[in-house]
Design a protein around this nucleic acid. Structure first.
Lengths: 224, 224
DNA sequence: TCCGTTTGTAACCGGTCTATAACTGACGAG
DNA sequence: CTCGTCAGTTATAGACCGGTTACAAACGGA
């Protein structure tokens, strides 16, 4: 489980990361809002712990930005006594908050509870048009045909394309979404992945009806 | 939706009940622990809001008593600053907590979230389809066959899979559920456990009908 | 304590999945 | 026309996954 912690207080950041690591989580550290966002995009962590008071981008702003693309659970760190902060945090889509200072046990208990809750709410099939993606089963169903088993990467690719179905998605975005940033030369990987996906899902892989290429722009998923 | 509120602070009790009623809920009021329990038994409310500090039976004790028979969502009201209370509340099975004093908006937001969550979390039965798990006897019965004795770990594995029967459950979830967080390399353990469980419960362990693997996704229990 | 059971660890195997490279044809710019 | 780029295809090696076997360590009740 990857957890991203963002706090401008270096000491607290290290402390929280250490506690999480102790409990078996992989902690990613960000010292400010912008790096939190870039790490989020690159690593796709399972949970975010955001300090509200950060220079530049506040925790609120980071949370809002994240919420535009993701339902990942977010815990906000607030200074004791700021009731309005709490309410605002919950309203912009944070899932929990914690008053500073807090005990390690408390933090870990809340993290665990959040992850548990998130799991329950996630993982139901996503569908658009005649395509139905089952994230739990790793399958894709097209119309009434039997479900097709997908690998981890194929699933991630189609999940993202499905979320943007009808619109072309650039190779770069797909790369960061599926692999989470790597060397820029990894176009090859995407080419491969698309090819294999087409072999599985297209009636006629040579001229695809679903996973189409938009020359120069990237790929697009057509759902009907 | 029936919501039971228990608090010995008469004013707060009335206030909370009023806020809930305003939002369309049917609020049941209890002034102490014992009456909370009796109302709970009589009315079977959909959610409990329990103050921790009550004379006689504390909110903790009420929660524990309720948890012996029910998985109804419980929200605890704590006094700000009692971090240890929060942890204990979560540990004995409370689902959420709220620091006093709290704003009406906060309370209602949390209540709504809890009810939503509870709806998703279908009650986990000990039996489903032709499978019947006896948690006291540590046995599994399949159809009319004689009961099979299970070890502690096998029981935990099957209990969790049974609660999610028909759905694939990821290896990570199973690991944390059965062993409760450890090093990430413990795939081996799960592999072993599944193998042993299959030896016991499957007619033909090599191609399992009940405890199936969903490649890349985890395992799934089929009950019919 | 001892013995049988349960649990953890390691090694091996076959199959699938992923990364990487090389080759092909299409297309547009110069 | 030729070159370079882009996308598709083919091929292959290595990583990873899940099943299996074997054995050691830990546990638990007589």
């Amino acid at each position: 489980m990857k957890i991203l912690v963002a706090d401008d207080d270096r000491d607290l950041l290290e402390l929280v990361a250490f506690m999480l690591a102790q409990d078996g989580y992989l902690a990613l550290k960000a010292g400010d809002g912008p790096s939190a966002l870039s790490i989020f995009a690159a690593e796709a962590p399972d949970l975010l712990i955001l300090d509200i008071n950060m220079p530049g981008l506040s925790g609120f702003q980071v949370c809002e930005a994240v919420r535009r693309t993701s339902r990942v659970p977010v815990m906000m760190l607030t200074v004791r006594g700021e009731e309005e902060d709490l309410v605002r945090a919950l309203e912009i889509g944070a899932d929990d908050y914690l008053n500073k200072p807090f005990s390690p046990r408390t933090l870990l208990a809340r993290v665990k509870a959040l992850l548990r809750r998130a799991r329950l709410e996630a993982a139901s099939p996503v569908s658009a048009g005649r395509l139905k993606l089952d994230l739990e089963e790793h399958t894709l169903q097209i119309g009434a045909q039997p479900a097709i088993r997908l690998t981890k990467l194929e699933l991630r690719l189609l999940q993202f394309l499905l979320a943007n179905h009808g619109h072309a998605v650039s190779s770069d975005r797909l790369l960061t979404q599926v692999w989470g940033h790597r060397g820029a030369g990894d176009r090859e990987l995407l080419k491969q992945l698309v090819h294999r996906a087409r072999q599985k899902i297209e009636r006629e892989p040579a001229n695809p009806e679903i996973l189409q290429t938009v020359p120069g722009a990237g790929y697009r998923l057509l759902v009907d």
